[in-house]
Design a protein around this nucleic acid. Sequence first.
DNA 1: CTGAAAGCGCTTACAG
DNA 2: CTGAAAGCGCTTACAG
Lengths: 341, 341
Amino acid sequence: MTLNGGAPTLDEVAKLAGVSKATASRAINGGSKVSARAQTAVDNAVRELGYTPNAAARSLVTRRTGSVALIVPESDERIFSDPFFARMLHLVARTLREHDLQLVLLIAQPGDEAERLLRYLRGRYVDGAIVASHHREDRLAEHLSDLGLPCVFIGRPWIGAERVAYVDSDNAGAAAQAVRVLLEGGRRRIATIAGPPDMRAGHDRLRGWRDELAAAGLETGLVAHGDFTEDSGVQACAALLDAAGPGGIDGIFAASDLMAQGAIRELARRGLRVPEDVALVGYDDLGVAERTDPPLTTLRNPIASMVVEAIRLLTESIDQGGGGGPRRVVFVPELVRRASA
Amino acid sequence: MTLNGGAPTLDEVAKLAGVSKATASRAINGGSKVSARAQTAVDNAVRELGYTPNAAARSLVTRRTGSVALIVPESDERIFSDPFFARMLHLVARTLREHDLQLVLLIAQPGDEAERLLRYLRGRYVDGAIVASHHREDRLAEHLSDLGLPCVFIGRPWIGAERVAYVDSDNAGAAAQAVRVLLEGGRRRIATIAGPPDMRAGHDRLRGWRDELAAAGLETGLVAHGDFTEDSGVQACAALLDAAGPGGIDGIFAASDLMAQGAIRELARRGLRVPEDVALVGYDDLGVAERTDPPLTTLRNPIASMVVEAIRLLTESIDQGGGGGPRRVVFVPELVRRASA
DNA sequence: CTGAAAGCGCTTACAG
DNA sequence: CTGAAAGCGCTTACAG
């Protein structure tokens, strides 16, 4: 057991290979300007010793860590079981791996004013950050912009959007499209089960629904809020039905497929048929939409495109040292027609 | 913009505070043996400059990174939406934070023979690792043991368990208890919806069910496998019912609440009542068990205890430099009686 | 309590 | 193509 905990060092590799540390280092990184003979000697020494470069020492001089942070808000623990988040986490991990980058998961605490988070980021543990779905009052965009750390938001931030790069999807436009599907189906009493108003997706989808209905000269008061979960969809649907009054409801746009699924359950419980009595359009298309009964007409959330693009923008920014100003890309969700509307 | 990318350095702090780097360093870390005067001067300089120590430089000498890896198997992307995993991830993140440790999420690729993973770990990016639910053929325990990196497995590893520390829960014992509940309720034709046989929890719960039934002199052939999801529970339950033959089935032990929920759906579809016609015991108690209709009698998975204990063992091992041999702790799941059995 | 100095393990001009 | 040397930004004996 040597001083460094037993891990072999570049010096030992160089010695065993009979070359200098400089040559050993070059052979290990890319191998440009290294003779075949030296390369082989170093390769063998590396293998024999089981050598791996010390990350701290390396990044102290290269100013690269090979790691990228994914920042998610704490909010509540259900975040991880939310299908949207689960999918995104998986996609981020996979895409990062293709870029040979390591994922560091950072959970933003609402309490500590992001101090802890910023300290970590300032310490240069990571080369850049991806920020996923944050809440209305977050000032993360400003803080990250001040920091000068390359970062890309997934979902346009509420505050400071002009100072950072982001990818987003056209939530409002997609919601409007959902309403048009309902209208074309002859529906006139169209309600919505909206998401949390302090989240971008919740807010923008509600806005799209309202604007489109208003443009058609129809009532825009049939709103109930959920939190994207199935249970909340049941509650919201019940509230809507109870409050609808004489005219009733003949169409619903739910801001998530999970909430739409809850709505189906509540409608069934009351003996209402989908789509005959109430037509239903969901949002996300991450798997559940095809398994409900009836299968959901929905808007496909372009998560994969957003994640891939976000990471492309991020690596670009990392490689260029952050020049060129923040970039934006907005994807358009695709309508998927099934049986519910 | 200075050479180091604009980030202030300890040298600048020291200069501004009018002290040496050594004193500045001491003031920043704990502050023992530092005069009140020097401490204040350094504190002010740190604040004025917005200084945060460079992580790489610091860990190069301290040999600590302040980060811990959570290693999860890739398997399939649904892993993140699995309630057990979501809960565990959340608990790990929270508990680590209490220890002032940062979570680095590592997703083990089945393809690359763990080479990539081991390279990362060997690079000393992290001080230790927590390994969550891995598959039968993984040789991770041996590899990590060879590495000498402090680590704790959550769930006893299939291979190399004698070489590493782990926490586990008594899955077999809990399954046996589930069977006893069914037996005490007068059930004699007891089936099981088992989990994946290549996962610890799946394997051990099946074993507990079988042993207890065998001890009672009853049939142990009524087995169908699922993957812990609700849909798979529906399928498995249907298969069981179809295959049961003349005697039928009057009790089911499902290895997850989600699969139990699927079973309830399938039983209802066939007009069978729970618990009157078929008594049902689930496993996990992570939320869904109280929301099914009827609410599930189940075994409470002691995830929180396991995570807390795993991190305690890990930090102990990190602090002691790995002396003392691997430790083990096994928790006993608690029976939660509700209406389904 | 304080500072000068060594050293953590690497990479990278620089000169050859 | 190769090696000696400097330096990345910190911490920590050591001597005072």
